[in-house]
Design a protein around this nucleic acid. Sequence first.
DNA 1: TTGCGTGCAAAGGTTTTGCATGGCA
DNA 2: TGCCATGCAAAACCTTTGCACGCAA
Lengths: 141, 141
Amino acid sequence: MKQSGGYKTKQKEQIIQYLTAHEGEHVTAQELSRHLEAEGTPVGTATIYRHLDALVTDGMLRKYTIDSRTCACYEYLPKSDACKRHFHLKCMACERLFHVTCEHLDGIEAHILEHHGFQIDQSKTVLYGICADCRKEQDGE
Amino acid sequence: MKQSGGYKTKQKEQIIQYLTAHEGEHVTAQELSRHLEAEGTPVGTATIYRHLDALVTDGMLRKYTIDSRTCACYEYLPKSDACKRHFHLKCMACERLFHVTCEHLDGIEAHILEHHGFQIDQSKTVLYGICADCRKEQDGE
DNA sequence: TTGCGTGCAAAGGTTTTGCATGGCA
DNA sequence: TGCCATGCAAAACCTTTGCACGCAA
């Protein structure tokens, strides 16, 4: 695996540092850009996209397009394989994204593969619904 | 449910007709636009987007984005309530859509609701992955 | 010194919005 | 006739690309 070969630059370090610090969260290019600017170390948009792209290719990052968002989201992938396996639950009410790691859900993947011949890609799949908090609110109304 | 209330116009009919004729397939705004133009009844881009948006709100259409694509895809949802009781599997290779009805899968919904407090909406959820046929092809290569 | 990395600006593409006009009810 | 629907153009966005300069090795 090409470990994002190339020079070690300040910009690259900043980007990777932010991404790893937000492991398990979804980060957009814009958020990353704003963060770096707020830190006093602004990085050009083109550079950000170039690095994100390279990191996705290297397998260090996952790229998503969530729902109706027009922009892509990126998520840092911990190196341990165990953590790579989780489903995403997207609340249609509050729009929050939940990460669920669960053996039962892994069983579902196996079931679909065995009985339906379909190999699910968890990294691309988002389950839509309503989260607990929002259901409470809706019941109350 | 507001059945896309409003006037019945030629443009609207054309759009809905095309979408229903392509049930189970993904359609982009661009494809729709080109098709209508080819038919000799061009419809403005803005109008197309406005209708697609309205139809998504009405629940007649599902909107989603495929990773590699830069544009959003839309898919007609059959009215039959049957579709609300099964999951949709989308093959990322051949782009076909599979409808899976399975008791085991219904268990997913119950499990997530009980253990994670999240109420899944099957009609909005698409599981992405690779279908049996495409996996065979990939293995063969 | 070499050549990749960076930033700016411009291009490319999709989707949204403002506004005057047209068409359904 | 009263409004919504439409279409054009422009704006708003996200992302990519070209190019000259800067910096790591």
